[in-house]
Design a protein around this nucleic acid. Structure first.
Lengths: 392, 392
DNA sequence: CTGAAAGCGCTTACAG
DNA sequence: CTGAAAGCGCTTACAG
């Protein structure tokens, strides 16, 4: 029953397969009466067209692929959630490919694993090499990217440089001048651009504030909790302590908080910490951070790809910037301020992190909390003034 | 070039399409010389067979689908990681379907979204209704399940009842008798069985210890941090305090820790907390918990499905049990023991949680830490003796 | 070992 | 509006 063919439906309805095909796809050119009869017959037989046969006949696969370097880390899982939703609602299939290790990536794009198999490809935080770009273009289908971009393809990404600058400027505005950086691994095989850009933002903000660079304050944390912990320990082990730390990801910031607690340093009384991402646990730790709506980025890039796929003439290359915003919580404070206050679970204040090209309609998680406390102070004012983008 | 057909390859190699097809698929019955010529021609043209055409001709799609109620929560992302790896290595495509909301689930299985589209289906923590089971069987392809099971399909799952009992027994063995339960939502639309089973295990362990049930000690936490926080607050607001809490997930345990800290209760000096899952953050919080290797479960069930798919005669139904183990960290202690020790980051002791049917070969994350400290004590001894499974 | 031919189940000009 | 026919690009008995 589940295996009914178009011919069986045609026989039952007393029409030709052509009419069945036309009726079921709503392409018009069929009388209402025929359509009705076909619908009934199809329903009765539980018929749905064989995707393989349709694909062969039309040349369109009705399938998109998302290619990611990781499936389990928060960013990637969240992004996948947004993408899947849009793709499903568009009635397309979504293939998931994980390029977790270098071997898998090696030759992946030229291997023909995608060839003739998908109508469009979504690349996530992959910095492409020239041969990889060529192989993708040879696929002759729309390609969109998240988190990175190249000349030929559409993309969506946050401005990592600006956003990192905003984070560091927040610390500077609080009076900090000795600010440590915990960066992701700079030389790993996937060529992530994120650590490079966030470091640039860090340095730019320092320079703009007239603070001389000190390479001893830049340590590596591998984007993990453990890495952040170890990097912080390294930071604390060398000469004069920093009064603030910027971690390029919240997970590294968590590690930093642990390392600081272990040696008895109070946050933010002794040292301020700011992260990046607004990971679900960031609120738990009352962590000041740069927030980005990853799920929304997934939705938007998926919409873009879905639209591109249905255009016979190639879609124009569009480069979207997703907004970020500074979320001030309890782990940052004025340099040398009075001892710690009681930890506050509510009361996040949010400030736009950069020129927002569009505003996310989804405020879900945050919106469900208690109303923000009004914590106005001179510090806040200073912070707000500091929000003008740096000329980078 | 990427669009070469089998005919073009045949022409270039000077053979028939039949020979090309046979050569490229290694089915034998072709001379070495022909194979060689075909390989060269295919390579030169960058040829790979059109999946749509192959599928139509063979009736096999080379595709598996994984159907999940959620993509972003840790458990699901981790499982997907394990599944994707095995499926990719088997040379099959993986389609991801998210049944996040009730509407999407409504009619999903009968909708024909899977029909003629996949060679096998993986269902994750979905408690199926009878109509859903029927619709799946009508698909006439192998179906495997994770976390739940039904008569007709193969599955892998941990023993939630036994494992929850192990958790509560751990508390009982430490002298606790007034033990609160933070359970997941019992009546949500997805019909998760996990909260039901873990609650059964909780009650069974209490009963086996001769501790009378007290329904006031059972509260709901929605499987989220916030839910765990609120549930704990509820628990603290009613009469005599519990001396220990079992949270049915680590995330709810995190929420509990936060609520306890907020009211100034010391863990474990004033109150013990045990979670469930061994979430990546559990180690961070030094949380005693029940550990399961979710990625390995994904690998195993994927292997099972891959094997079933390649068997023309249906594969036998097999029900695997994945092991769990009690991981004793710093949030549980003997009732009324001396005040808190310094928090320890290393030094987890692990004890088998239940009769392990197979042993996970992957000890990755845990193995990379510092060597375990020897923290032998009377408590440990008691705990070890307590590991015999309850007759549930 | 090799190839001609039929067939998989659709879609889509084309003719009426 | 409707249908016969060709074609999408493979695979696989079948005959040699």
């Amino acid at each position: 029953m589940a295996k009914a063919t178009i011919e069986e439906v045609a026989n039952l309805a007393g029409v030709s397969p052509s009419s069945v095909s036309r009726s079921l796809r709503d392409v018009g050119g069929v009388s209402a009466k025929t359509t009705e009869r076909v619908r009934a017959a199809a329903e009765q037989l539980g018929y749905s067209a064989s995707p393989a046969a349709s694909r062969l006949a039309t040349g369109r696969t009705g399938t998109l692929a998302i290619v990611m370097p990781n499936l389990t880390r928060w960013f990637f899982a969240e992004l996948l959630g947004g993408v899947e939703q849009v793709v499903r609602e568009a009635g397309l299939d979504l293939l998931v490919h994980n390029l977790g290790d270098t071997e898998t990536r090696q030759g992946y794009f030229s291997s023909g694993l995608l060839r003739k198999r998908v109508d469009g490809v979504l690349l996530v935080t992959l910095a492409l090499t020239e041969p990889e770009i060529d192989a993708l273009m040879a696929l002759d289908v729309p390609v969109c990217m998240v988190g990175t971009d190249v000349e030929s393809f559409s993309s969506i990404r946050i401005d990592d440089v600006q956003s990192a600058s905003t984070a560091v400027r927040h610390l500077v505005n609080l009076g900090h001048r000795r600010i440590g950086l915990i960066s992701g691994a700079p030389d790993e095989p996937m060529h992530y651009t994120v650590p490079v850009h966030r470091r640039l933002g860090y340095r730019a903000a320092l320079e703009a504030a007239g603070i001389p660079a000190d390479r001893d304050l830049e340590v590596h944390g591998d984007f993990t909790i453990r890495g952040g912990d170890e990097a912080t320990t390294q930071l604390l082990g060398q000469g004069e302590l920093p009064t603030a730390i910027f971690a390029e990801s919240d997970e590294m910031a968590f590690g930093a908080l642990r390392a600081l607690r272990r040696v008895g340093l109070q946050v933010p009384a002794d040292i301020s910490v700011i992260g990046f991402d607004d990971h679900p646990m960031a609120e738990y730790f009352d962590l000041t951070t740069i927030s980005q709506d990853v799920r929304e980025q997934g939705r938007q890039v998926a919409q873009q790809l879905v639209a591109a796929v249905s255009r016979p003439d190639g879609a124009p290359v569009r480069r979207l910037h997703a907004p970020t915003r500074l979320v001030v919580r309890g782990t940052t404070a004025v340099l040398g301020a009075e001892p710690r206050r009681a930890p506050s679970l509510a009361g996040n204040r949010t400030v736009p992190g950069q020129g927002a090209q569009h505003q996310s309609p989804d405020k879900g998680r945050r919106g469900s909390g208690p109303p923000a406390l009004a914590r106005q102070s001179a510090t806040d004012q200073k912070e707000r003034r500091g929000q003008r983008p740096l000329a980078t």
